[in-house]
Design a protein around this nucleic acid. Structure first.
Lengths: 251, 251
DNA sequence: CCTTGTCAAGAGCGGCGCTCTTGTTTCTTG
DNA sequence: CAAGAAACAAGAGCGCCGCTCTTGACAAGG
């Protein structure tokens, strides 16, 4: 919501040389409404046909205006995509945060499992949006700066889990694997930024667990487990449970 | 190479009602050459602009013929994409097989590591082809049957590694996690098909390790480690080494 | 020789992203 | 309150795209 307003403000700045002064006019309200409607229709088209088939003209048709009129609201198809990407990151981030705070009183590994399952549930419910953010990037599309905030919400939840687990001794450090100076420095920066007091070994296992989360969801959703695994739910839970054990016990 | 010939034969059958009789005519030779040239140009376009931007017309322009003429060789853009997908699977599969047989006399975990690094090296060298097969599927494109063979080459290498490791006692079974009937049945089928005598616990850890391989490559290549990890090479090796330990020791 | 089958080429269909121009509506300001 | 400025929807048009249908050239087999 926030970022949408920011985007449309940036858009205004880009179009008009001067911003009048007031902002609560009827036109502005109409603009926000239309912007939202365009995004809603675009999101539906995305869910129906995927990101590559997202056509500005089709969206415009359904909204009931002419294609060129959409450019008043989104300066390009890519900007529209960016808005959808941000929304997707926010959606999955919110699910992860909700899953975490709903199980805050439980053990860290249980919370981790809940967050993983929330991410997967969201992915299964919104496959194209998942592909948009965790699949191959749209070719020739560079993720703008505005996406990195929303993109960090899920990792943030997981890093806080690591911090909590280390603080409460639920996560044991285990033996620190040998690693290069550069990696130690990366981990140090990560610790400084978002995971105080979490030792390198735990950060490493946390990233391994995270890679398993996305790896398993990718394998499942992109068809690489076809004819191999049939009960995806049970398989995911099994693998995540094992990953959790490894994460907290280092074994 | 094999599969290309198969595809083009299927194509011929589809186009002509009767196949003359001989096959080494000058026309036939020209046809294979042109087919290969089209594929080569298409692969370069893919590497330059990604799969969504692969344009039959552009390829035709560069090959020096008219767009409609390409349809004599590939009945649709999707069939051309399929050929590229098969080639990509074959390429990475061949790398994996080569990496494995080059280190056949070494320990199983060292071989596993070599295979993982070969896959990643291929992915880094051919990002768009990697995205084509391990990223989000091309929207509205259903992977035809002909791709599953080439797609299995890498998994096959890994499963044989598991088999070897179990046979030589380099991989210990460890404790078998509790799992549902359905999963046990999936594992049993996998064992029957491609990994004789490999216990469920090892199959589970093997799939976990494989999900880490692809998960880490995805994270790296799709930008999710941006500003977090800087020395990707060292990070990947570190994580894979740890995954290997977990795979063979169950800890 | 002439039929037959393969081929490149062209024209054309509808759709795409995007731009530029043209009036109209809405809001602000003198 | 009216005049000017800003924002707007709409239309026409550009050069792409994948794909189809038709036409005429050309080589091989009878």
């Amino acid at each position: 919501m926030f970022l949408v307003t920011a985007l449309e403000m940036r858009h205004n700045v880009g179009m008009a040389t001067t911003v009048p002064n007031a902002s609560r006019t009827a036109r502005d309200r109409a603009r926000v409404e239309l912007t939202d409607e365009i995004k809603a229709v675009a999101r539906r088209h995305l869910a129906d046909h995927g990101s590559a088939a997202l056509s500005l003209r089709a969206v415009a048709r359904e909204v009931g205006m002419v294609s060129s009129a959409v450019y008043r609201y989104f300066p390009s198809r890519d900007e529209l995509l960016t808005a959808l990407i941000i929304d997707a990151y926010d959606a999955v981030g919110e699910r992860a945060e909700a899953a975490d705070s709903a199980s805050r009183d439980r053990a860290v590994d249980a919370r981790w499992l809940k967050v993983c399952e929330a991410v997967r549930a969201w992915a299964l419910a919104n496959p194209h949006e998942y592909a948009l953010i965790y699949g191959s990037p749209v070719p020739g599309y560079a993720a703008p700066q505005a996406t990195i905030g929303p993109a960090s919400r899920v990792p943030w939840v997981l890093l806080r889990l690591l911090t909590d687990g280390v603080a409460s001794d639920e996560i044991v450090a285990g033996e620190t694997p040998a690693m290069s100076r550069t990696i130690r420095s990366d981990f140090a920066q990560l610790r400084r930024t978002a995971a105080p007091a979490v030792p390198d070994a735990v950060l490493s296992r946390g990233l391994a667990a995270w890679s398993q989360v996305l790896g398993n969801i990718n394998l499942e959703m992109f068809g690489h487990l076809h004819n191999v695994i049939h009960d995806y739910d049970a398989f995911f839970t099994l693998q995540m449970r094992r990953a959790c054990e490894f994460l907290v016990r280092g074994a």
